[in-house]
């Protein structure tokens, strides 16, 4: 089996390169749709990591929801606003920087502390616990988090409706 293992390792490193390259493209691209494509590549790379961690189901969900649905929603947003060759001016020295720096700092500190506490040793494969098990855990052990997320989505939906509805009335006036 060792030859398959070598191929698997090569693919793993390719995945790392792909994920990071996608992320870099997403941040630095000057044409907005290229940024969305970079994000889609990163989502697919992360889906590949889930396969290596031994959970194909999570990987499928990552592709279905992130690479499939969320990318399409982003695409819809950019498609309406920009023509294919329009270059977006990046205002790095503006107030965007003041907002971006704390955001990067907070998430960076959280991620770094998580990595440090977990240690950089070999990752333990959780094994494919089975879809039925995931469902049971979501509805018994983690039911509070599960319900809170659904509540958040509901609030987001209602908020979107309120914003759009108000827009129409203002346009009518």
């Amino acid at each position: 089996m060792s030859e398959y293992r070598i191929i698997a390792e090569v693919v793993f490193y390719l995945l790392i390169v792909l994920t990071v390259a996608g992320a870099v493209l997403a941040v630095t691209a000057r044409i907005l749709i290229h940024a969305v494509v970079g994000l889609a590549v990163t989502f697919l790379g992360v889906a590949g990591f889930y396969v290596y961690l031994g959970s194909p189901f999570l990987s499928m969900m990552q592709i279905l929801i992130y690479a499939g649905a969320i990318t399409i929603v982003l695409v819809f947003g950019t498609m309406i606003g920009y023509t294919p060759r329009q270059i977006v001016e990046t205002k790095i020295r503006d107030k965007n920087l003041r907002l971006a720096l704390p955001a990067c700092l907070v998430s960076g500190v959280v991620l770094c502390s998580a990595v440090v506490t977990a240690g950089l040793g070999t990752m333990r494969q959780s094994g494919d616990t089975g879809i039925a098990d995931i469902g049971k855990r979501l509805l018994y052990e983690f039911s509070l988090a599960f319900e809170l997320i659904s509540l958040l989505l509901l609030i987001a939906m209602v908020g979107a409706m309120v914003i759009v509805g108000g827009q129409e009335e203002r346009d009518a006036e």
Partner: peptide, 14 residues
Amino acid sequence: MEAGLVFVLAVISF
């Protein structure tokens, strides 16, 4: 694959 049906749907959605 245990999640074969989801796999097909994920690929089609792409």
